[in-house]
Design a protein around this nucleic acid. Structure first.
Length: 647
RNA sequence: GCCGAUGUAGCUCAGUUGGCCAGAGCAGCUGAUUUGUAAUCAGCCGGCCGGGGGUUCGAAUCCCUCCAUCGGCUCCA
């Protein structure tokens, strides 16, 4: 007999060799029907595998991420089986579960497959699911595994097997399909009740663009039809939040084929909004000792050779522009730091001048591959809220913290709470990629990790994601469709000061090298506004939104009073307008609601007589009648609450 | 850049076994209406069917090519 400890700490004595599924059955049939996999001593395995020793046991269901993972991983196998039946002779790459579903990379040979084929594949998957196939795990020797896939002619699986050690290879069989797989899998395919193939795309084998492109099919499955319906509804909702759609509707930005792809045009409302964001940051930065600078949009090629960017990105950049007579070469600046280094260098520095913090809303241009462009989040011309801090090594940590304070202030003012902090360090397996001394890298990485430690931050650490010149901390958010975007960034750099021979005279009267911090709390204005649009679904915070209020006169008779209200509002720094169309009030309200204007002020006879406005809040409805003064106070208080900056 | 899909009016979409002058709703404009918390009515304007080639008596519809967009892959100083 062995002891099985359940999550509620209760202990069950069972025969050795009992499966998780058996234990579930002993608890209740209902539970057993819902068990997707089991977590035994912290390891996720098939619920149908025997347990042979004392263990803690978690029965994983649809409510557990690991349960979903088993479901979707099994679904990938099922899709592969369906596809193999429909397209005999196809070869398979990898087929994992992902955050929302699963995919399988498939080599279809000469056959063209498109989303028009999805229906057929989905139907086959469902009919296989109904066969209630089981997943049969078996350990197999490396030689036998190689034999099997050699027989099948699947070079992709053979490549994967080649990297595995003999004795750790397992196969899973379900129906007519056998796959190299570690598991775990569902007790049976019958638990898959609904399937939807979501997309088809090319994907390089092993993510290497030099290798063959396979066809990746994404899909998702559910234990209930209803959940699929809900998932699809959620996708529809997310699309409504897409910044590309909202940006057009709210007249924030536009693109023009004539201007060029990836080159955003800020419309008046968007430009005003962006200026408010910039102004806000400028005020914060001023309080924190930054000085504004301005640098040109181009710089000599030589500048980027010194900085090292030329070697790294020269080939991938927009090609240089040249002077007509001398043939001097200039790059459109892809970043501001080299210019800022030269600003540092323009006047000799003493340790008393440090930290030297210079900021610029610097517009930069980068050649992004055409397939990468994406609304405002990935563009070829954008403006960074850039700044560089030059300080002594002793000051580094405090300066780093100061930057984090700014990020915090900004995220708070925008009610932005849902972000991930990522620390990016070197790739220990590929040190060739980086420039700069070992000693400096270690110092920089240590400083960041210490700050994280001191602040008790919840961060994810990624090795190999560092910039080529130094480690960094990034603030990452997800867009409406769950794609991740990097917003703010703080990067430590010992390298550029070296390359630009930056110096300061220390208290010891000797020359020293400063440390440099690159930082951009927004990241880029374009990407930030895009993510903000999606975050607030177009309903910007009151202090930021283009139009804060709209006055809606009931009829032409009250236009005069409406104008008077408008003047009062404008005099109180409230951005407002009047709807003087000869439309019914219901219509004016509807239009203002759709434009997401936060406050609608309805004025008619009653309001004119007692100098008031009837206030309707966007998305909420009528909130009562106020005097204009009261309304102004209410708006100002709401704005101040968000902009409550404590430095 | 690569794989796949898409491209009809400012927006959302009809229209393909190739066949009269390419349609609708919304938006816009004009007029009527003077309106009390999410769409007043009527009329009008608006499209070389993404661009360019080709096949055909005839192309929005079929073929080629380029461009852009969308979903991924790779990349992202």
């Amino acid at each position: 007999m062995i002891n099985i400890t359940l999550p509620d700490k209760s202990v069950r004595q069972v025969e050795s060799g009992t499966t998780a599924l058996d234990i579930a059955k002993s608890i209740s049939e209902g539970l057993a029907r819902n068990v997707l996999a089991a977590k035994v001593n912290g390891e996720v395995i098939d619920a149908t595998l025997p347990i042979n020793e004392d263990a803690s046991l978690n029965l994983l269901t649809w409510n557990d991420d690991e349960g979903k993972a088993a479901m979707w991983h099994s679904s990938a196998h099922l899709m592969a089986e369906a596809i193999e039946q429909l397209y005999p002779g196809v070869k398979f790459g990898i087929g994992p579960n992902v955050e929302n579903g699963f995919y399988y990379d498939i080599d279809f040979g000469e056959t063209q497959v498109s989303d028009a084929d999805f229906k057929k594949i989905e139907d086959r998957i469902l009919s296989l699911a109904r066969e209630k196939q089981t997943f049969n795990r078996r350990e197999i020797s490396k030689a036998d595994a190689i034999d099997y896939f050699t027989g099948k002619g699947d070079e992709y699986k053979l490549e994967l097997i080649d990297e595995l050690a003999d004795g750790e290879i397992t196969f899973y069989e379900s129906g007519t399909f056998t796959d190299l797989c570690r598991g775990p899998h569902l007790p049976g395919t019958g638990m898959i009740k609904a399937v939807k193939l979501l997309g088809i795309a090319g994907a390089y084998w092993r993510g290497d663009e030099k290798r063959k492109m396979l066809t990746r099919i994404y899909g998702i499955t559910f234990p209930k039809q209803k959940e699929l319906t809900e998932f699809l509804e959620m996708l529809e909702e997310a699309k409504k939040r897409d910044h590309r759609k909202l940006g057009a509707e709210l007249e924030i930005f536009a693109f023009s084929q004539k201007v060029g792809q990836g080159l955003p045009l800020w419309l008046p409302k968007g430009a005003e909004l962006r200026e408010r964001l910039e102004q806000f940051l400028k005020i914060v930065q001023k309080k924190m000792g930054y000085q504004q600078v301005i640098t040109p949009h181009i710089g000599k090629v030589e500048l980027y050779k010194i900085s090292g960017h030329y070697d790294k990105y020269g080939e991938d950049s927009f090609h240089p522009i040249t002077t007509p007579i001398e043939g001097e070469e200039f790059f459109l600046k892809p970043m501001n730091c080299p210019h800022h280094c030269e600003i540092y260098n323009s006047i000799p520095k003493s340790y008393r001048d440090l930290p030297y913090r210079i900021a610029e809303f610097g517009t930069v241009y980068r050649y992004e591959q055409s397939g990468e462009l994406h609304g405002l989040t990935r563009v070829r011309g954008f403006t960074q809220d850039d700044a560089h801090i030059f300080c002594t090594p002793d000051q580094l940590k405090d300066e780093f913290k100061g930057v984090m304070d700014i990020v915090e202030i900004i995220f708070k003012a925008l009610d932005f709470n849902d972000f991930i902090i990522q620390i990016s360090l070197r790739d220990p397996d590929d040190m060739e990629k980086y420039i700069g001394s070992e000693e400096n890298w270690e110092k920089a990485e240590k400083a960041i990790l210490e700050v994280v430690e001191e602040r008790g931050l919840d961060v994810i650490v990624e090795s190999g994601e560092a910039a080529f010149y130094g480690p960094k901390m990034d603030f990452i958010v997800k867009d409406a469709l769950g794609r991740k975007w990097q917003l703010g960034t703080i990067q430590v750099d010992y390298n550029l000061p070296e390359r630009f021979e930056l110096e300061y005279v220390g208290a010891d009267n000797e020359k020293h090298r400063p440390v440099m911090i690159h930082r951009a709390p927004f990241g880029s204005m374009e990407r930030f506004v895009a993510v903000l649009l999606e975050h607030c679904a177009g309903k910007f915070p009151l202090w930021l939104t283009p139009d804060q209020a709209i006055v809606l006169p009931i009829s032409e008779k009250y236009h005069k009073y409406a104008e008077k209200v408008l003047n009062l509002l404008n005099n109180s720094e409230i951005r407002a307008l009047v709807d003087e169309r000869s439309e019914k009030t219901g219509r004016k309200i509807r239009d203002a609601e759709l434009k997401k204007i936060p406050y609608m002020l309805i004025v008619g006879e009653k309001e004119e007589n007692d100098g008031s406005v009837s206030v309707r809040k966007q998305g909420e409805g009528d909130i009562g009648t106020f005097t204009v003064e009261e309304f102004v106070k209410m708006v100002n208080e709401e704005v101040d609450r968000l902009l409550d900056i404590k430095i």
